[in-house]
Design a protein around this nucleic acid. Sequence first.
DNA 1: AATATATATCGACTTTTCCCGATATGCCAA
DNA 2: TTGGCATATCGGGAAAAGTCGATATATATT
Lengths: 100, 100
Amino acid sequence: MDQVEIFKALSNKTRLQILTWLKEPAENFPEQPNADFENVGVCVGQIQIKAGLSQSTISEYLSILQRADLVCATRVGQWTYYKRNKEGLEKLTQIINSEL
Amino acid sequence: MDQVEIFKALSNKTRLQILTWLKEPAENFPEQPNADFENVGVCVGQIQIKAGLSQSTISEYLSILQRADLVCATRVGQWTYYKRNKEGLEKLTQIINSEL
DNA sequence: AATATATATCGACTTTTCCCGATATGCCAA
DNA sequence: TTGGCATATCGGGAAAAGTCGATATATATT
């Protein structure tokens, strides 16, 4: 993954917020009946409601974050759950500390 | 400084390169007769030559990086020298580690 | 004061990003 | 197998970023 793409993914207010929300799912989203926040994350619909942007925009934003290895997705039935990608975020810290 | 602006400043190939060059000025720029890399940094002209973009573009890029607290500038005579802003970069690492 | 040099700012044009509504796809239930 | 959700993808219009050349400003030299 290109470093520039990682920073581009982070250079949008809504996408940054999504990442902060996903750091503390239980504080930021209502209970999910069928899925555990820790295991699979939060479904697109909940993120969309919280962000207040259109469904298509949020779907796109999540895939931008995913391409940058900042979140990871799990499909369960008709839902896609997104959660923080710990490894990707650690790698980002390393890039900043070692290259910039 | 808004977090988004920091990431925007970093989401450009040339600006990222400038930061990596400024991490090791002696490896990336020719000797400067009148100024010490460690003290004041590298002058705009040298950065411009290395980047291969126009003078106006590089001047603008450096001020974007400065507004994001990623570099700091020192005017000495007719030259402006830019160097890495260690504190700003450390703050960025902290933001990522504590909020994302 | 006039000139030369380094950097900053301005105006313009092109490319990219933001964000939407409409539509397609995948999955489940009746 | 048809209908109903959840999500993804597509096409587009508006706003922002990328980049340039021209010009302005600041400083130094003569």
